[in-house]
Structures are given as C-alpha cells and as structure tokens.
Design a protein around this nucleic acid. Structure first.
Lengths: 168, 168
DNA sequence: GATATAAAGTTATAATATAACAATTATTGC
DNA sequence: GCAATAATTGTTATATTATAACTTTATATC
C-alpha cells in the first residue's frame, strides 16, 4: 500500500519492495543498477522525508565509496532519469518515487513540521493541468507540483496538546 | 491584459502598471516600498523571464546601491512576503506576480527554450488541489506549481523552419 | 529632538551543484 | 580470451545560490 501520513507501515518491507521494483525496472531497460546507485537509492528510501544530497555523503563514505559531491549527484541524476527518485525543488532535496513506471501527474504534499512528504496521483489534477496547457498551447515536459503545509498529524498536535492542558 | 506567450504587448506600460499596483498595495498595508525595493521590483519586471538574484546585482550596483547579495535577497524577501514577486524554485529564479492581491491557486508555465514564464490562474486546478489536500487531511500553506516545457512559439519554430527549407 | 524601530551596508561564510580530467570497470566485437 | 570501446567512478577544483552576524544609516514615534 502506498505510504500516507497516517499509515504506520512496515518500513523495512517498504524499502525492500522499492529496491525490488527499481531492480526490475533497470533490468527491463538494460540500465546498470550499480552498487553505488543502489546504495543511494536505499539511503533515499530510509525515510519518507526528502533528503539533501549532502546528507547522504556520510553514509556513502561509511560504505567505503568516494564521498565527494559528484558521487551522490551522479547517482541521483541516474535515479531521476529512471524515474526512481524525484527532486523536490522547493527543498533542494530528493525523495523516492512512490509509483515508478507510471507517468501520471503527481504532486507532493510536504509537511513543514515533521518534514514528511507524500506523493499523490490525481486524475483531476492531471485534467486541470491538461486544460491549462491546452488553453495556452503549451507542451508540458515535466512538472513540479509541491504543496507545503501541515500534515494531519502535525495539524492535530497543537489541538491535542491544548486539550491535554485543559484536563489538568 | 495579462501577459501570455502570444501577446505582443506594450511592455513599458506593463511595468508602469505593475509598479503602480505594487505601490498601492504597499501604501494600503503600511509597508515601505523603498527605493531599492522599487528598483529590484522594476528589474524583475524588465522581462517575463524568471531572473536569478545574482543577475540583478550589476544593475543594483549601477544604480549606486550596495550590491552584495543580502541587498537583493532582502528586497526579494520583502517582495515575496507582499506577494509581489514569486520564486520559481525549479529555476532558483524570481518573477513578478501577475495578479498581486488575489489569493487563487496559480501555476507557472515555463518555456525551457525562450525562458519566458506565464502565470496562470485556474479554478479547476484550485479545486483539484483542494480535493487532494482534503482527502489527505492536509492543510496547505503555500504551493509551488511549475510546468516546464515548450511555449506555443518555440513549439512551432522547428516546424516553421522545416517548412521553410522545403520551399527552397 | 531623543528614542525606538526598520532598513540598508558590509564582511564572511554556508549550502547546493557542476566542470573537467584521470582512473577504473564493464561491455562489445573479434 | 583479449584488445578496443564505452560507461562508470574517483578526484580536484570551482561555480552558483543563499544566509548569518554585526554595523551603520534612515525613518517613525513619542
């Protein structure tokens, strides 16, 4: 099941699944899912928070690879080209693609408190964007749709805390 | 009239209008539209291409102001807070807001060839995003919706050129 | 006009990303 | 298998974008 803000999921399984899917995609396309690309992919999938490229470098070093910036940027470039990872440009950060292979308009909901990000596919969104581009005679090549705010958990926290105080 | 990719508009008028509107907004809100803020605003409005902060520095220097980065970033921060300028995060660049004052979901169509960007308001887009956020229990605070591709002019150029060749 | 506040000047540096070339590893054709 | 080729990774240096921190100047308030 896709990750949402609510789901208390088995993240180990989440990573394994993502790695298996990525592996298949690379094999199908004759692309080399090398050790370092796999490592970076795994690091990105460590969490559902978008991570900065430089945050990955220590772990890359620990794993015995060269840990200069080009190392991680190359792996990230490859993963983006294969649609396995997205760049969240408003954060200068990277996150695993929730549904690699698909080619549907997706958007990211990004919590500015807990930093979790969820990728959501939406037909209505896709239609709205098709409308806009057709009206303007524009040919879309790529999209960056990022909505920043409060996720359901963080939205409720201050309310729950206030309720807790009142009880005392 | 709003700028579109097609419109051959009177850009002088375009800038004057934008400046007048910005001036009004600042007066209404008791905000100080200082010389340097006005200068940066005007520089941003020089074109309908998103401009990088560092691209503005030479003109700021020429105008006799301090041209260290904080100067331009402060002005841009102010203009963004007032909703007079937007940051296009996929380009690390800034562009004038096409309809300051409004608070409707807008998206940018950005041509990766001629670099022009057009801000489009869309009720359908707004509805689609409301759907998504409500489904997820998310509270949106700000949005970055950027669609990169080919504008109608640049889309047609290769076709017209090919036709021209055939005629010879 | 003195005081408080906001804005701008200034210096230094942080954070993010890429260029360019060398060394290594994998693939291909023989 | 082995040379030739292509792809990947290592390495050094540097470009680009943005902010921190403190000083000075200008503006608003009383």
């Amino acid at each position: 099941m896709a990750f949402t803000f609510q789901s208390k999921h088995d993240h180990g399984r989440c990573i394994r699944q993502a790695l298996a899917t990525a592996d298949n995609i690379c094999v199908e396309r004759g692309q080399r899912f090398t050790k370092i690309r796999k490592l970076v992919f795994g690091l990105i999938w460590q969490s559902h928070k978008p991570l900065g490229a430089y945050e990955l470098l220590p772990a890359i070093k620990k794993a015995g690879f060269n840990s200069a910036p080009p190392t991680v940027y190359r792996a990230l470039d490859f993963l983006q080209e294969q649609g396995l990872v997205h760049r969240i440009s408003s954060l200068n950060a990277f996150i695993g693609c929730a549904h690699p292979g698909h080619q549907c308009s997706s958007c990211f909901l990004i919590c500015d408190q807990c930093e979790l990000a969820v990728e959501v596919e939406s037909d209505r969104l896709e239609e709205a964007i098709n409308d806009i581009t057709q009206d303007m005679g524009f040919v879309a090549e790529r999209e960056h749709i990022e909505i920043v705010g409060k996720c359901p958990n963080c939205k409720l926290k201050p309310i729950l805390e206030a309720a807790g105080k009142n009880e005392q």
